[in-house]
Amino acid sequence: MSNSHLFMTSGFPRAPLKNGIGRYICQLKRVTIKFCKNHGDSRGIREFIETELVDFSRKNPGVVVYVKTRRHRAPCLNAEYLNGQKEYINCHNFSKDEVNKWLHLLLSRSGKEVMRYRKMWHTDNPSIQGIWTPFTFKDPKLNVASFPLNVYWGPPNPKPTATEIVMEMFRKQKLEDNQTDDITINEKDNVKSSQGQ
């Protein structure tokens, strides 16, 4: 964000009058081209009027184009939009192509003032599953439970403590010892029985 954005309003992109849900209407309603007949800085705009303006108007019958001469004043494009906003572009020393480019920019705008977008999308209903309540995702079992419940004591996934680990190791060792004892006893039994045979 640069310094020029400091006083820019911020917001979300919204289509004027649900434009495009039904049909698309171009938001530019009228444009006034002001220029001087003999000053040098209007040369490009004069060329544009001579060669391309009629085609532009044919292509966009929904835009009213006014052409106004002003002696020795700066050339400009003055656009008016359906929402009542106006846009002014100073065309000092513009070439024909530049005028064309800026006019098409005016044509494709919605007429809302330029703003910094907080997001490139917007929704009125940001939550899919609905508004959160204290009971969202609550286990229905709890309705009939009698408290206190031992399950809910302590942390949810407790790790074994050092003492518990040692006790576990001790228990395992004891088990193994018992097994080896059993084997030796069995071997002794086997020896005894073979001797007896």
Binding site: I25, C26, P61, G62
Partner: peptide, 10 residues
């Protein structure tokens, strides 16, 4: 203005 009003709405 009236002409382009109609054209604008198609």
């Amino acid at each position: 203005e009236i002409y382009s009003f109609g054209k604008r709405l198609g």
